[in-house]
Amino acid sequence: MHLLMMGAVISRHCLRHKAEKFSGVLTDTYNWLCWERIILPEVRDQQYIDHQPPRPVDFINSLSNTAGFYVGQHLGLNGKNLFLYHHGFPVQMALILAQNDLKLKKQRQILVGGVDELLEPVGYTKKFLGICSDLQLGEGSNWLTLRNEKEGALASIDIMPEEIGFKELFALVEGLDSKSRLAFGMRMPPEDVAVFMEHTVCARFDYESHCGYYETVPLYAINRFIEHEKGSLLFIDYFEKRYRVMTLSVFG
C-alpha cells in the first residue's frame, strides 16, 4: 500500500479508537479532507514511459476522494465526503466550510482531516509549496471531529472567514491577554513573527520544533495544543502576503 494511504490508515485506526471512546461514531458524519491530488509515480511512469495502462487500483488511488472513501468505509460513515484543495490555506478553507455547515445545522458532526506525504524531489516540492529552502519538509495525517455542541467537547475553534490585513492583525495581537498563546504558520516571514512577538504580552506556542512543514500542518498545531495546553491560542497563518487567523480555546 502506498505511503499516502498508509498515513490515513494509521490515523484512522487511532481515530476510531478515540471516536468510540469519547463520542461514539455517528454514521452520518461528514468526512472532509484537505489534500493535494498527485499522480502516483508508479502510475505516471507506467503510462508515460512504458505506455502501459495503469493497474486499476493505482489509478483509483491517484484520485483525490479515494482517501475519503477508505476513511468512510473503515469508520462506517455514510455522510458526504469531500476533498478540498486550496493552494495556501487548505485547512482554513475546510474548517470555514465545516463551520458554515454546522452553523446552518446541515450536519451534526463533521470529521475534518489533512493528509500530506513528503514528495521527492524535495527542491521541487519546496518550490511548489512556496517555502524557503532551509525549512525542513515533513508529512502528517491529522484529524478533528467538529460539532456544534459544547457538551463533551475538548475545545472550541473559530475560523475568521476573511483574510485579515496586517494592521488589523497587529491590533488583534496587541489586544491579547497574557494567558493567550500565539502560533504562526511556518511560511510566516521571521521579521513578521519578530514584530508580532515584540508587541504582545503572550507567549509563543511552539509546535514547529516537533514537525517538518507540510500544507496541512495547522491541523497538527491545533491537535498538539489541545493535547498539551489549556486556554486560548491565536494561530496566524501566512501565504504570499496574505494572513488568516484561527482561534482555539481549550476547555478544562
Binding site: 483525490s64 476522494n65 475519503g68 469531500l82 476533498f83 486550496h86
Partner: peptide
C-alpha cells in the same frame, strides 16, 4: 475576492 477548489472526481 477569494477562491477554493474541490476535487472529488466526478462530483
Amino acid at each position: 475576492k477569494d477562491s477554493r477548489s474541490i476535487s472529488t472526481a466526478c462530483t
